[in-house]
């Protein structure tokens, strides 16, 4: 199988990686670039834990071919703090304060999906928040406080 050399621009940094065609972006982010904040709960697009922002749009990185990710801006959960100059994003602060997590496994995906939502819709309704995370499972069942954290962060962003 041919190996493709690709330049992936992740969180503002370019990494050159040799990838096999069938490798997912999630696999490459985790195993080759070493950013393990992106999770691979199911590897088939049914849980939301692998969500990254690709050109500011949320996608499932487990369904994206790594070899098809060149030439785009990719943001993983690690990039959120980086983008903010080392400061936590209001979403991250709200999730911490309001307990928007229990085991934390779904948290990176939830935060990135919410981030994309707030960038397009700074004053979402509760229903809009739930739809933005519609494809995200939380087996710990923290939906109550996840939604609350996102709405709280939206308010904080609007106030600032």
């Amino acid at each position: 199988m041919t190996v493709h050399t690709v330049q992936l621009r992740i969180n503002g940094e370019v990494t050159t990686v040799d990838v096999k065609a069938h490798w997912s972006l999630a696999y490459v982010i985790r195993e080759k670039v070493g950013l393990t904040g992106t999770k691979t709960g199911c590897e088939m697009g049914t849980c939301g834990s692998c969500t990254v922002l690709l050109d500011e749009k949320p996608i499932f990185s487990c369904l994206r071919m790594a070899v098809d990710a060149e030439g785009h801006e990719i943001q993983t959960i690690e990039g959120v703090e980086v983008e903010n100059g080392g400061e936590l994003h209001p979403l991250q602060k709200s999730f911490i304060e309001l307990h928007g997590m229990q085991c934390g496994f779904c948290t990176p995906g939830m935060i990135l999906a919410a981030k994309a939502l707030l960038e397009n819709n700074p004053d979402p309704s509760e229903q809009e928040v739930r739809e933005a995370i519609g494809g995200h499972l939380c087996r710990c069942g923290t939906y109550v406080r996840i939604v609350r954290s996102i709405l709280d962060a939206a308010q904080a962003v609007r106030a600032s």
Binding site: L35, T36, G37, T38, T76, I77, E78, V80, E81, L88, L91, Q92, F95, I96, H99, M101, G104, T107, P108, I111
Partner: peptide, 8 residues
Amino acid sequence: AYEKVTGK
């Protein structure tokens, strides 16, 4: 919580 929200 910090580690969870930052993916660390």
